[in-house]
């Protein structure tokens, strides 16, 4: 079971790595656009559009990543008073609901992405970026990853209901001390 959990989370972590790179790219891109325009009056439409195109992978690939690193905001007023098995049960409900929400949204958005693909939708501005379906495809992808993280969390919770001492801790290479 442990290896299944870790294999699922490896996927979340890897695509999270891509999102981390997008953040660095975003910082450098927006700063570059500002400086290029101020100093040289250069501002290609495609580079301006790329700014907000980068937010989509950051936000959507980051969903499951933040859940994996337990940065999902929850109110632990009662939770912290629960006995261990009840905590595990609460975690299981949370994980199963996550799977459901992720699956519904991923399914709902497939037709939406497909429509953009069939239209070959692009930017209405000349010089803008083409292939909007790629941008839109991050919606089902991000929520599918959420389903995967939800499955991993469900397995973890089931193990703890079975035996509260089990701890299928996520393989964290990075600290999680920074949480909003």
């Amino acid at each position: 079971m442990k290896s299944v959990v870790h294999r699922l989370e490896w996927l979340v972590e890897s695509l999270g790595g891509l999102a981390r790179l997008c953040i660095l790219a975003l910082v450098l891109l927006v700063a570059t656009n500002v400086i290029l325009r101020y100093l040289f009056s250069i501002g290609p439409v495609a580079l301006q559009e790329l700014e907000w195109h980068l937010v989509s992978p950051i936000a959507l690939l980051g969903l499951s990543y933040s859940m994996k690193h337990r940065a999902d905001v929850r109110i632990d007023f009662l939770y912290e008073r629960f006995p261990a098995r009840l905590c595990a049960a609460s975690d299981l409900i949370a994980a199963l609901l996550t799977v459901a929400v992720g699956a519904i949204i991923a399914w709902l958005s497939l037709a939406y992405v497909n429509q953009a693909y069939n239209l070959n939708e692009g930017s209405p501005d000349p010089g803008g970026l083409p292939m909007r379906y790629l941008l839109k495809a991050f919606i089902p992808l991000g929520f599918l990853l959420l389903v995967i993280q939800g499955i991993a969390d469900s397995l973890r919770a089931i193990a703890r209901i079975h035996d509260p001492a089990t701890d299928l801790a996520p393989e964290n290479k990075l600290s999680t001390e920074t949480s909003a």
Binding site: L119, N120, E121, G122, S123, P124, D125, G128, R132
Partner: peptide
Amino acid sequence: AANAYFWAGN
């Protein structure tokens, strides 16, 4: 309700 030129990308 909109303007048709918003759909130039389609």
